[in-house]
Design a protein around this nucleic acid. Structure first.
Lengths: 197, 197
DNA sequence: CGGATGTGTTAGCGAGCGCTAACACATCCG
DNA sequence: CGGATGTGTTAGCGCTCGCTAACACATCCG
């Protein structure tokens, strides 16, 4: 059975070498930036040497493309699944916050890459990732407007992006154990949205 | 008179060519990442050609170093100045938020570079920038703990970083005019901090 | 005047990049 | 067995990069 993704990279047919390579590459891209990482660095990180990567990916750009697409699909699928669940608007919003916080804490490198390497995508990949991201934002916008009355679309969208920034800042600052940081971030995010107006 | 900085780059002796180059380079670094920008690109952006930059900076690394140091010094000076002003804890915190929001909206490229290119700094520059950033964070930590009782240092520090992420996310999403976005961000940031505990 | 100083140019270096070519070998299966 | 397939290797290509060298010229000033 194909199953819905449980982990953003290394799923289904991406399991094995391909997934392993994407995970290692994401870590490196997050640390040094896309252009700061060489093909040989990525190979070395998975125990093979540079050019062997081309048995699995068409190009370095293709790695980034598949990486960001995969992340965006995972976020969208998770967001939609939580948004569909019944429960009041407050519960839905809290579930979205919890989902995103959990993702940021579990996959800090992926959050970093998603944030920073968008501009390095090839045109086609960039369009696809942007479309997926927009749909994810729209899930949030609907949830925010349902839970916080009196916000127009533009304000809700800005608030959504701001909360992403709040949650995604995690990788750069982890002075707390996850089991204290996660609830703090959830309080901060929901507190921010409650104050949106 | 030397005066305190009114603009993060292009101050005092940095006025003229040096400041102009740093501003142009910051814009390019923000768009493409440090390694994604060539010496010739920076030169072209100020109307001279590549190698002429070495009349003003020792290296490309030195440009980034001076850029981030300058930004960090500006933030720290502004933060300390607002923290010293009298007024209740709430007023001080609100002033810090307003100051940081204003900086993020006025200099989106600088915020982006400060966030993303820290890892590209040479060792010496990185140490200095880190020290300045820590002091800026400490200004916030004190203000947060004064205004939001019951937070220990670690939680306050995490909250400060989260609010930076919230405010700094602005460059990536501006669907509102500044005069609506700024108050929204201030409400979100203060709302988050109020909910920290 | 004439040297010093500051700021620009073009040519070109050495190094590192992404990627391809050519080959090696292990596994699988008709 | 023996070809097909998949996955690894090393050598090396063409290109771009940061940076230096060598030179040009304008301004300033003793």
């Amino acid at each position: 059975m194909p199953s819905t993704p449980t982990t953003p990279l290394a799923n289904g047919e991406k399991s094995g070498r391909r997934g392993q390579i994407l995970i290692a590459a994401a870590e490196l891209f997050a640390q040094h930036g896309f252009h700061g990482v060489g093909i040989d660095d990525i190979g070395a990180a998975v125990g093979i040497s540079g050019p062997a990567l081309y048995r699995h990916f068409r190009s370095k750009d293709a790695m980034l493309g598949e990486m960001l697409t995969s992340i965006s699909e995972y976020l969208l699928a998770g967001g939609e699944s939580h948004a569909e669940h019944d429960g009041g608007p407050d519960e839905v919003l809290a579930a979205l916050v919890r989902f995103h916080v959990d993702f940021a804490l579990t996959h800090p490198a992926l959050i970093t890459v998603q944030e920073r390497s968008f501009a390095n995508l090839a045109d086609t990949d960039r369009r696809q990732v942007r479309a997926l991201q927009r749909r994810y934002v729209e899930v949030w916008v609907r949830a925010i407007r349902a839970a916080v009355p009196g916000l127009d679309q533009a304000h809700a969208r800005s608030a959504a992006h701001a909360v992403f920034g709040l949650i995604n800042s995690t990788p750069h600052s982890r002075h707390l154990p996850d089991d204290e940081l996660a609830p703090l971030l959830q309080r901060l995010a929901l507190g921010a949205l409650r104050a949106a107006r």
